[in-house]
Simulated scan of single mutants.
Amino acid sequence: MKQALLIIDYTNDFVAEDGALTCGIEGQKIAGEILKLANNFLQREQWVILPTDLHKKNDPYHPETKLFPPHNLKNSWGRNLYGPLEEWYQKNQDNDQVYFFDKNRYSAFANSDLENYLRSRKIEELWLTGVCTDICVLHTAIDAFNKNFNLVIPKSAVASFDSQGHYWALQHFKNCLGAKII
């Protein structure tokens, strides 16, 4: 079965200590596992996809403007991939199995060509990693489920700034979306 690893929103603003909307230590702890998975997927000639949040400061038309402080702003340090993932991406960005794209909603499927990308490569199983477990990872998982993709969630490769939301989302993935939690 063809698989893709999605590394969702693993940026400085969501992970670095001084990020605008950071998960902090919890987000930083998962870096090694994400890199291990990314390398494993490339070695097995599977896909690594990096859907990454992109915003404009004080955009009056974006619903998140009212909910969160400015984050992942275009051309900002906060939008860069976090630490070792940025290095990994720079090294592998020309690999045809690596796909980085901008997203502007919680779900990586909303307003994007992700479904077409996956279907054209006959990818059936998605491994979801990154942040935040209970926001962007969750909304991506729900859309993936509704589009009949198989889901795997490596619990050591997802994090949130809300520990209760994180644990709730892990249970939701398993009990409501039929995801395999590893």
Rank of each mutant, 00 (worst) to 15 (best):
G78S: 00
G78P: 02
G78T: 00
G78K: 04
G78I: 04
G78F: 07
G78Y: 07
G78Q: 01
G78R: 06
R79L: 15
R79N: 09
N80K: 12
N80G: 13
N80F: 14
N80M: 13
N80V: 10
L81R: 10
L81F: 10
L81C: 11
Y82K: 13
Y82M: 13
G83F: 14
G83K: 10
G83L: 15
G83E: 14
G83D: 14
G83S: 15
P84G: 14
P84Q: 09
P84I: 08
L85H: 02
L85T: 00
E86P: 09
E86M: 03
E87F: 14
E87S: 12
W88S: 01
W88M: 04
Y89P: 15
Y89F: 15
Q90G: 11
Q90L: 14
N92E: 01
N92F: 05
N92H: 10
Q93P: 00
Q93N: 08
Q93L: 07
D94P: 06
D94Y: 13
D94M: 12
D94H: 13
N95M: 05
N95F: 06
N95W: 01
D96F: 06
D96Y: 07
Q97A: 04
Q97S: 07
Q97P: 00
Q97C: 08
V98N: 05
V98A: 11
V98Q: 05
V98H: 12
Y99H: 10
Y99V: 06
Y99E: 07
Y99S: 04
Y99D: 02
F100T: 00
F100R: 07
F100M: 12
F101E: 00
D102A: 07
D102L: 08
D102H: 10
K103R: 05
K103Y: 05
N104G: 15
N104L: 08
R105V: 05
R105L: 05
R105F: 03
R105Q: 10
R105S: 05
R105D: 02
Y106T: 03
S107G: 02
S107A: 02
